[in-house]
Write a protein that binds this DNA or RNA. Structure first.
Lengths: 341, 341
DNA sequence: AGACTGTGTCGAAGCGCTTCGACGATTGGC
DNA sequence: GCCAATCGTCGAAGCGCTTCGACACAGTCT
């Protein structure tokens, strides 16, 4: 182990000078800086992380809590994790991986041991029990997702309400007058993250604003469940020509069911999905979709958390960052009844 | 921040006694232990990670280096990462997430700063440049994958050679006399991890042993490339009735191409895949497959690395753990020409 | 010229923990 | 009942770093 003291000796300066060269917290003459940097280079010095954390009360570590097993599409989680890790390095931070199943005890452990300077928490539930602990321990934190009460905490998420609206607006703009939202399973609306409910709200608001008739059905995602949902919709509203799908698992079944029922996509029926680009591109036809901005969310989360750390004890301005949806038009949506006259 | 000293005061003992209660490195009377534990509990004490790392020269952190973006199936990487994290917690360790793109500099940084006690390195290339650095820095490490020269390093991987053999044996046992291996793209055989080459070796060895005619073609995984490979195989060896596929991307194309060419699976042609269970189960028909034992690999890697840490300076017995393949028979393989008489 | 203000550097204290040696208090052997 | 061994506890010395106050020196202003 090469220590700061050895660097100092080699450079012919005192240890504190080396420290100041590294931290830039005091001015250092060019000559001294050069000597010190040369010594660091030649010895291959790296500051001891533990010693640094102890003395400075900063570990330069961000804890990232992710779901252990998830209903969410795994590659999205992975992409967020990678974006967080990459962006964290830009700030000289490392990332500690925690699993959600450590729960509140995990949060307490990290906060109590000063293992990490801050936390980024994924898979946020509406009434997430980690949130009160985060508040109580005063851990700088960013949530990826939006809880019922985000007061005092920074959040980053896709603007699902705008997403719901955007899908409706796209379809309405194409002349569809009857549209349906095929959503997540029942449970997701109650229990979980609230994103589903927010999408629905945006969907309904935009439908009302554009004078479009809209129905919403939750769907378990299996082939059978999707078939049931679809046939019910078509029975009640045979004139339905536009579908918005927010359910990874239901996408493939929906497409093949539409085909089976003789409704060509996009000629007879338009489909807009809310899903990762990868899924939209793999489908046939390639889907018009609002993508899940995984990388953007990861980056934003890190930036927010670093901003919190930098501003230190200053007033806790917790902002919620809702990333505006980006709807990409592909091959699954086309003009509907009105436009066609 | 509650410190060990405060716990000591509250319990009416000296700080060192509290430390020994925690570390169990010296015997402590039951009464003292109880008092100390009560104090810890009531104060919600967690040892300061940095201070502990500094004093004990152990960070209780494992660094996990994973590919940033990968050709590999992302959920497999995720599953390994989750298994590593979960298993690490069993040993009281946390996991630091690094990306492969930090390369040798990343390894040096972690080793030099004592940020982690050991490394688990994924996505190992045959001549991986991180390996010499791992040796040179004497970082305890486990590789997930098998490099050309694993000397002095512990490795964990699926036994791909046995996997290749197992697939052949399954097909041969069903009476198939002409079989083909549809493998990864050209590049993978040269550049990369060597698993493809090992599978091929096992495939060929078993074919020879069982007197089965075997061909191997690499495949880029696109629909077109798969079509080309398949038609070439069927042209040269029209009697081919068994396929082994080691290429995520080629599975779906292969199945639909076989269907198009009028070869029913499994009635006319048997297919065995080497892929995650999830993929095998999603396909239609559900595929007979050798799964990628992601969780097992993650767990094993942690156990190995902890064993290295525990045995400390003792002779460096680096063992390579090859996980035996498990072939699960599903709906894509059935008796071939011989068995049918 | 003297008082003052910056600059650049140093010495020392201390962050919270582990661990070594020391030291009473028991205990056991004879 | 004495000596040695053992047990349970303590005090103190660091681990490698940051950071505060001090200080020497040079330049600026009356």
């Amino acid at each position: 182990m090469v220590t700061l003291a050895e660097v100092a000796r080699q450079a012919g300066v005192s240890p504190s000078t080396v420290s100041y060269v590294l931290s830039r917290k005091r001015s250092i003459s060019d000559e001294t800086r050069r000597k010190v940097e040369a010594a660091i280079e030649s010895l291959g010095y790296h500051p001891h992380a533990g010693a640094r954390a102890l003395a400075s009360n900063r570990s330069n570590i961000l804890a990232l809590m992710i779901p252990l097993r998830s209903d969410m599409y795994v590659p999205v989680i992975m992409e967020i994790a990678m974006a967080v890790t990459t962006e964290a390095r830009e700030f000289g931070q490392d990332v500690l991986l925690l699993t959600k199943d450590e729960g509140t005890a995990g949060v307490r452990r990290i906060a109590g041991s000063c293992l990490a300077d801050a936390m980024i928490v994924m898979d946020i539930e509406l009434e997430d029990d980690r949130i009160p602990v985060l508040r109580e321990t005063e851990t700088p934190a960013v949530l990826i997702g939006l809880p019922a009460d985000p007061a005092g905490l920074a959040c980053v998420d896709l603007d699902f309400e705008a997403t719901g609206s955007a899908c409706v607006e796209h379809l309405a703009g194409l002349g569809h007058r009857d549209i349906a939202l095929i959503g997540e399973g029942e449970g997701v609306y109650k229990r979980n993250t609230g994103f589903a409910a927010r999408t629905l709200a945006g969907f309904q608001r935009a439908a009302a604003a554009h004078g479009v008739r809209a129905v919403h059905r939750s769907c378990e995602g299996t082939y059978e469940s999707t078939a049931g949902v679809l046939s019910r919709i078509l029975e009640e509203r045979p004139s339905t020509t536009g579908f918005v799908v927010q359910n990874e698992a239901a996408i493939a079944p929906l497409l093949s069911l539409l085909r089976l029922s003789g409704r060509a996509v996009p000629e007879d029926t338009s489909v807009v999905a809310i899903c990762p680009d990868q899924v939209a591109l793999q489908s046939s036809p390639r889907l018009t979709s609002v993508s899940i901005p995984a990388e953007e969310m990861g980056r934003q989360a890190v930036r927010q958390v670093m901003a919190q750390l930098d501003r230190g004890a200053e007033p806790h301005v917790s902002q919620t960052t809702l990333i505006p949806p980006a709807l990409t038009v592909r091959d699954s949506s086309a003009p509907g009844p009105i436009a066609l006259g």
